[in-house]
């Protein structure tokens, strides 16, 4: 028997792999929670697309600063050493290769590293792009945090080919799901880690793409 990670569990698992000194952007959804699991004494610098470098913990209600929000327009604090830049410089950070890591949520990831995270169909009447396309092509590393399978149908989100409209092609380096950690390699998805009690075979059964056993598996 095995127990899938909940959303906080995925966030905590990602936080374990972020070393001191990295400059990191966290997307909306599961990724936003990652910073809560980075110990305070490990200096990781978090970026928000609206021009914040060095996001600190959420403020107590009495300490809210209306001029200080993150990319999800939530109130935040600034760490000592933090800085503000304007929007074009903030996206120069994203697009210019200055982020060591960006973590995004996604609908699907394919074995060649394509990510689909902005639309469920090419015919969606109103398009919601935001900053994901910029972050996906610009960060030094792109990791994805998502549930391994869709909620109702249990469809695999780890795909040979994405079925949803792409955000970017060939950019995902690693995927953290509620079941496993998968590296995207030229040979395909390599299983780096699985939740306790899950077997490679059981993981493969839940995955559309063909998986490759990692060194320790």
């Amino acid at each position: 028997m095995f127990k899938p990670l909940d959303r906080n569990g995925i966030a905590a698992r990602i936080a374990r792999d972020i070393p001191e000194g990295w400059f990191v952007n966290l997307g909306i959804g599961i990724p936003t929670g990652v910073s809560d699991f980075v110990p305070e004494d490990r200096e990781v610098i978090f970026h928000a697309e609206n021009g914040v470098i060095g996001i600190g913990p959420a403020p107590a209600p009495k300490d809210i600063n209306p001029y200080l929000v993150n990319a999800g327009v939530q109130h935040i604090t600034l760490r000592t050493g933090g800085a503000f830049v304007h929007h074009a410089d903030s996206f120069a950070i994203a697009r210019g290769g200055h982020l060591d890591l960006c973590v995004l949520g996604a609908f699907e990831v394919s074995e060649n590293g394509d990510i689909a995270n902005w639309a469920r169909s090419p015919d969606e009447p109103v398009k919601q792009v935001g900053g994901a396309m910029d972050l996906a092509v610009g960060a030094k590393r792109l990791w994805v945090a998502m549930e391994h399978n869709t909620k109702g149908g249990g469809e695999s989100r780890i795909r040979r080919v994405c079925s949803y409209p792409l955000t970017a092609k060939g950019v995902v380096r690693r995927v953290y799901t509620d079941l496993a950690v998968l590296d995207v390699t030229p040979a395909g998805f390599v299983v780096v880690d699985m939740v306790e009690g899950l077997t490679f075979e059981a993981l493969q059964e839940r995955t559309e793409a063909t998986l490759i056993r990692g060194a320790s598996r």
Partner: peptide
């Protein structure tokens, strides 16, 4: 009329 532009492209 609507023109959707990725946010970094919009800023740039």
């Amino acid at each position: 009329d609507l023109e959707i532009v990725p946010q970094g492209t919009l800023a740039e």
